[in-house]
Each structure stands twice: as C-alpha cells, then as structure tokens.
Design a protein around this nucleic acid. Structure first.
Lengths: 217, 217
DNA sequence: TAGAACGTTTAGAATTTTTTAAACGATGTA
DNA sequence: TACATCGTTTAAAAAATTCTAAACGTTCTA
C-alpha cells in the first residue's frame, strides 16, 4: 500500500539514489500518516482518525476541513465525521479565527492528557462494567449454592471459584488504569499471582504516597 | 440482545418472581458469555473468540468442538477457526483422550500467563514497529535539515520536535509492556511529563531491583 | 435578494469482517 | 469395502463498518 523508497527492506542493498529533500519530507510524512492510521485501528478507532491526527500533528498551523480532505484524499463528509470524533476524545481541538468562517483544527500535543481521558472514559468503563457484572453473578451464585440441590450447589461453587479469578483480573486492570490516569505507581510482580486464590501475604509497598498495590484491590 | 431477567435495570422495581436455580445458573452463564464476547471485541479479537473462551472457562471438563457449537449456536467451521486462534494466543489448550478421536479443549485459567504472551507478541510488536519507524524518520530528517535550504531545514526541525514527542510516548508504552510481562514496577508520575522535552531531573527510583523508571528509556 | 462558502447529514455504494453450509480428506468401525 | 465420525477448508452469504457524493441548512457577501 505504501509506495516507499526509503522504508523498504534494507537488506537488499540496491543502490539508493539520493532523494531530493522535498521527496524525503514527503516520504517521512506518508510513512507517519500510514503508521498512525494503523495504530488507530489497533486501538479500536479507525484508520482515518489516526491519519487525521497525524496530519494535524505534523502541521505547524491549524488546518481546515478542506486542507485535510486534500492531504488525505478523502471525502469532506468522512473527514467531518471523524474530526469530530477526534475532538470528542480530546485528541484534536478547534481554533477560531477572527472574521473567518472556516473551522481550524489542531492536534492536542500533550498526548498523555488525551490518552488519560481515553483510558478514563473508554477503557475504565469497560473494566468496571465487567467487574459489576461479575459481582452480580457472584451474588446470585451464592444464593443458588444455598437454595439448590447438592448437585447444583457444587456447580455454583465451581462457577464461584472461576468468577473470582476473573474478578481479580479485571479489578487489577481497573486499578492499573486508575494509576495510569492518576499518576501512581504499579508493581506487576503481583500480577503473576492473579490466578491463585491465596490471600496476598505481605503486599509490596512502593515508595510514593500515590502508589497502590494491586493485590489489595 | 440479551434477554435477561436478572440483569435488567433494578430501578424499575417490578416484583421479581424468584427464578429456579436452573434458570439462575443459565442466566449467569449467558451474561458471562455475552460479557466476554464484548471484551474480546474491545481488545481487537472477535466476539466468538471471547464467547468460546467463556464457555470453556465455565466448564469443569474439557469440551469438544460440537459441544461448543451447541452451546453457542454457531457453525462448526466458525468454531473450528476461532478455537484455533485462541490456541495460538495461548488462551485455550487441547486435551487428548485415549481412544477418542475427538479433540477436547480447555481454557487456560492462569489468565495472566496468556495475557503476558499477548502483550509480548501483539502489543509490543506494534509499539516497536512504531518506534522503529519514527527512528528512521528522525534519521532522515536530520539528514534533510543539513542538506536542505533554510526553509526546508526549518520544517525538518519542526518535524523532528514532533516526532521526538511521539517517540517518547511509544517507548514509554513499550517499556510499560515490558514491565507488565516481566513483572517489574512502573511509576506513572513521569507519564504526564511525556509531552515536554526537558530532561528528567531525578528519576524516581522504586524499591525493587526489577523496577524501571520510564523516563530513562 | 441571489449566490458563494462552509460544515453536516444522509442514502446508498464499497469494503472488510464474520458466518454459514457444504465439500472434502483423514481416520476409524462394521 | 462401505459407512460413520470428526476437523478443516472453501466459496458464497450475511452483517458490520467505512466511505462517497449529493442534498441541505446556515451564514456571509455582492
């Protein structure tokens, strides 16, 4: 898809004629746009969102819709929709210019800020949803294991054990996300113990007030 | 999609007639399968993979292809393909029974083990790819900023600054993944500084040998 | 008031992903 | 040998996602 002379496999050492600076810049830009497109896909957004962010990220000045339509060769409607999605995620912001009806956009360069927001609003939502659902299930299973026949109670008990494993995992994940957003510290030494149901003996404390040992969750 | 009596909105307090233990177990199971399907989707797999894992996760004995086809009401081909994908990711393993031609499958219960593998092989691949590409770009831009006109050199310089920001981010991410896999500790206090180009003054050391301060990457 | 410039919405087209049903090959059994 | 069982492959269908081009409403300008 990418027709790049610069990024091709270096092992075949064909003579690489030097490219003009203009072309080199163009290659760098294209490669970058492609990459962010792929990354966006990977993270559950879509290619165009990544590409739009890339274009803005490499632009010294804010750009208009039509600027972006041109540089990405996409349609105006598509760009309009996706740029607004980027805005909602805090990855892009709008700039207003005096006496200019056009909307200008620029990339949020403090990426960590944007990522924190995404983690908080998207990933944590997911983990909480899972934990909540599992907790409800556990409640129900405890009910069942009392009321039901021995046979059923045994199954319920089995479910309970398994559910508990997953609950720990997702709570671990949620704790991790929380630390990422709030700037705490996390020790993954405990993560490998997630599958086992023993109580944590002595949690490994870290040396900052903000830290959090995930075993305790 | 889910026709659940138990998980419906509790705020409308219609009288909830008690369900039989059988039905309760069924509800719990369905809810769980649905949830893992959604989660799998969220993480870039697909719904069926999550559902298959869920079914195996809640089964005391290993199951055959046809067992899973029945409990998920999917086609054999589809299950075959997706169960093998799960196998490749280390989320499911095959069990052989003597004098039985059928293949039996069971879930990997030590989930953290499986997740580590995924992080190592999928997410880290992504981050490394990005870092490598950016590094190549930076090299090229440094070239350009020497050879080119003042005008072009200025643009190259601008690109360089922006690229550096992203390089830091993805290296941070890669370091984080590495710590997750290897069981180290990570301090997210430094993450918020990612966007700024100042050198880290005094890295916050953590109290275990395995720890790693991401500023230093 | 007419028309241009701009961003959004929308209906449908194009593309990608997921699913199915049937064909197939391999292995076992009567 | 004939037949049944089992898992994989495959071609096509179905579903979901992404994209486009045109219509539209607003706002500004001549």
């Amino acid at each position: 898809m990418l027709d790049s002379r610069l990024y091709r496999d270096k092992r075949r050492d064909e003579p690489v004629e030097p490219l003009s600076p203009e072309l080199q810049m163009e290659e760098v830009t294209k490669e970058f746009i492609n990459n962010l497109g792929r990354v966006a896909d990977f993270f559950g957004f879509n290619r165009l969102m990544g590409q739009l962010y890339a274009v803005l990220f490499l632009s010294p000045e804010p750009l208009t819709l039509d600027d972006m339509v041109k540089s990405l060769d996409s349609s105006k409607g598509n760009v309009s929709i996706n740029i607004r999605a980027l805005e909602r995620w805090g990855l892009v912001r709008q700039i207003y210019k005096w006496a200019d009806r056009k909307n200008y956009y620029e990339a949020e360069i403090d990426i960590w800020k944007a990522i924190s927001g995404i983690l908080q609003e998207r990933e944590r939502k997911e983990s909480r949803q899972m934990v909540d659902s599992i907790n409800q299930s556990i409640e129900m299973l405890e009910q069942v294991s009392k009321e039901a026949s021995a046979q059923q109670a045994a199954t319920a008990q089995f479910y309970l054990e398994r559910m508990e494993v997953l609950r720990r995992l997702f709570q671990f994940g949620d704790g991790l996300l929380d630390m990422m957003v709030r700037g705490g510290a996390v020790d993954f030494g405990s993560a490998s113990k997630l599958a086992h149901s023993e109580e944590p003996g002595n949690p490994n404390r870290l040396d900052r007030g903000e830290s959090n040992d995930l075993d305790e969750l």
